[in-house]
């Protein structure tokens, strides 16, 4: 027992290292799906710049949500209310501007403030009651959607507010959330920016380490001094604000807000996060993975269109893909935990 123990360090090949990363499954999936559509639909416009921008824009809308939803999932919680928030934040912008005559920038600020407040409320309820966030945010999904519908109909007697393009002219804030800088839709820029920022926070900051800790084992994290409640509440605010960001971009793009907007987006965002290797039970995952998951779903959604197959089939692909991805990620994660033994 007294002699120095032999070194148990083993050289691990770079390929193995890559495979042990949580986002590996989604990266492989993106490459596979891209190759598939390039072969099947390459001559029908999938590979053209327009086709590319087309699926990237679809991916971006989901990816905006997926990056913050991934962070929250790694912290061990869900937010099922992000879909409803897209409708609600859109109305929080549209009604004051179109009905009450607020300037556009004030409407945008209100949308974000409302989302931040509501996200805080979600987080506070989850942390204080100790109830599963699945239940708490399922409740807020209904309350928020119903509230948006009720309030909008009460104020406008309709479920849709349109004609907002006129108000956006020359507004200082709306320029940030609309247009095509360098020919690329603004949503794609925001998607890339948000992914990079969220990934930086997760991997390179103390707060990111707390996210892993809070999701991995909240009691253990608390015992070593991690402010678990604050971490979770902050992330609930982040998911709600990212939903509001998507809502603002959509409203400025289409010139209208609709109470039904964003329905089921919460589940698509969770699907993207899971495809990206984020563990449903928390403590493990990657923002890049979640974004790749969104890219994958965007590609499939638009790719099907290019192949000429009826897009009604999209959800079949989505479901199958989700299941396959989870099985693959599960297998890879087990491998990763064994790899160095």
């Amino acid at each position: 027992m007294n002699e120095a123990p032999p070194s148990r360090l083993r050289k691990v090949s770079p390929v193995r290292r890559l495979m042990a990363r949580p986002e590996f499954g989604s990266l492989a999936g993106v490459i596979l799906v891209f190759a598939f559509f390039a072969v099947v639909a390459g001559d029908r416009g999938f590979l053209t710049p327009m086709g590319t921008v087309n699926y990237l824009e679809v991916a971006a809308q989901l990816g905006l949500l997926a990056s913050t939803v991934s962070l929250l999932m790694i912290a061990g919680e869900f937010d099922l209310s992000v879909g409803s928030m897209i409708g609600a934040a859109g109305m929080a912008l549209a009604i004051p501007v179109a009905v009450w005559g607020w300037p556009m920038w004030a409407g945008i600020l209100l949308a974000f403030a409302f989302a931040a407040l509501f996200g805080y409320l979600n987080g506070y309820l989850v942390v204080r009651t100790g109830l599963p966030s699945f239940i708490v945010t399922l409740a807020s999904l209904f309350v928020l959607r119903g509230g948006t519908l009720g309030f909008t109909r009460w104020i406008t007697s309709r479920t849709r507010v349109s004609g907002l393009h006129a108000y956006a002219q020359g507004d200082p804030l709306s320029a940030l959330f609309s247009g095509h800088p360098l020919g690329v839709p603004i949503s794609i820029w925001w998607w890339v920016l948000l992914t990079l920022v969220a990934s930086f926070v997760l991997l390179k900051t103390p707060f990111g380490n707390w996210i892993f800790g809070a999701g991995g084992d909240p009691r253990a994290a608390h015992a070593v001094g991690v402010p678990v409640a604050r971490v979770k509440i902050t992330l609930f605010v982040a998911t709600a604000v990212s939903a509001a960001l998507l809502a603002v971009i959509q409203v400025l793009d289409t010139g209208s807000a609709d109470v039904l907007r964003g329905e089921l987006k919460e589940l698509e965002a969770i699907a993207a996060a899971v495809i990206g290797g984020n563990l449903l039970t928390g403590g493990y995952g990657s923002v890049i993975g979640g974004s790749l998951g969104a890219l994958l779903l965007g590609m499939v959604k638009q790719g099907i269109f290019f192949t000429g197959i009826n897009t009604d089939w999209f959800k079949v692909f989505l479901g199958t893909l989700l299941l396959a991805a989870v099985l693959l990620n599960d297998y890879l994660r087990k491998k990763a935990l064994e790899a160095t033994r």
Partner: peptide, 11 residues
């Protein structure tokens, strides 16, 4: 509660 299994030793 000593350690969180899914995250690295250094984290």
């Amino acid at each position: 509660l000593a350690m969180i299994p899914l995250i690295s030793i250094v984290r």
